[in-house]
C-alpha cells in the first residue's frame, strides 16, 4: 500500500471539480498518483498526460481562452521546468493558471534527490510574484482551492497551491 493519502487526494480532487476544473494536465509523481487516477476515471474530466510540465502551461492557456477551466498537477521540479512558459506565456498574456504543486523536499523528506528543489520552491514563487498557499491539513483544502481559483480568474494570473507532506503522506 502506498502511504499516499487516498482520502486527502479525494478532498483535493473534489475541490478542484467543485471549482469548475474540467481539464487537468499531469506528469506522474508519487504524491499525485491518486489524483491522476481520479482524473482518469472521471468521465467529466479531460486528463492530458504530458511529456514535460511546461507543455501544460500552453494547454491550460489554450483551454482558458476557449472557455474551459483547467488545473496543472506537477511536482515542484515540474514547476522549475515550466518557468519560461509561466513567464512568457501565462504572465505575459495574463492567463490564469491553477498550479497544484507537490512540495517535495521539505521537512521529513527522505529522498536525497528531492531536497534541492524543495529548498528553492517558495523563493522562486515569490520571485515570480506568483500568489501561493499551502495545503497541509484536510480542513482547509476545499476553501483554499476555491479561493485560489477565484484569485487566478479575477487577477488573470498564475497561482500555486503547495501540496504538503502532512496532507499527502500518511506514513508516520
Amino acid at each position: 500500500m502506498s502511504p499516499v493519502s487516498t482520502a486527502n487526494s479525494r478532498l483535493v480532487y473534489d475541490a478542484l471539480k467543485a471549482s469548475g476544473v474540467r481539464l487537468m494536465s499531469a506528469l506522474p509523481e508519487t504524491w499525485l498518483v491518486h489524483l491522476i487516477r481520479m482524473a482518469e476515471e472521471d468521465p467529466e474530466m479531460t486528463l492530458v498526460r504530458l511529456a514535460k510540465e511546461e507543455e501544460g502551461v500552453g494547454i491550460s492557456a489554450g483551454a482558458h481562452l476557449a472557455g474551459v477551466r483547467s488545473a496543472m498537477l506537477m511536482q515542484n521540479h515540474g514547476f522549475l521546468a515550466s518557468i519560461n512558459g509561466i513567464v512568457s506565456c501565462a504572465q505575459l498574456y495574463r492567463i490564469p493558471l491553477l498550479m497544484m504543486v507537490s512540495f517535495r523536499g521539505e521537512f521529513g523528506e527522505r529522498d536525497p534527490w528531492q531536497t534541492e528543489g524543495g529548498g528553492v520552491t517558495e523563493d522562486l514563487l515569490r520571485a515570480l510574484r506568483i500568489p501561493f498557499s499551502y495545503l497541509d491539513s484536510p480542513g482547509h483544502v476545499a476553501h483554499r482551492i476555491a479561493k485560489a481559483e477565484t484569485l487566478a480568474l479575477s487577477a488573470n494570473k498564475p497561482v500555486a497551491l503547495l501540496l504538503c507532506r502532512d496532507l499527502m503522506w500518511e506514513e508516520a
Binding site: 481539464l23 500552453g58 494547454i59 492557456a61 489554450g62 483551454a63 482558458h64 476557449a66 506565456c89
Partner: peptide, 22 residues
C-alpha cells in the same frame, strides 16, 4: 488569430488545449 509572441515551443500545446476544449 492568436500570436504567441514568446514561449517558444508552446504554440502547438496551446493548439492542443483549444482543440480539446472545443
Amino acid at each position: 488569430f492568436f500570436y504567441l509572441q514568446h514561449a517558444m515551443g508552446l504554440a502547438s500545446s496551446m493548439g492542443l488545449g483549444i482543440a480539446l476544449a472545443r
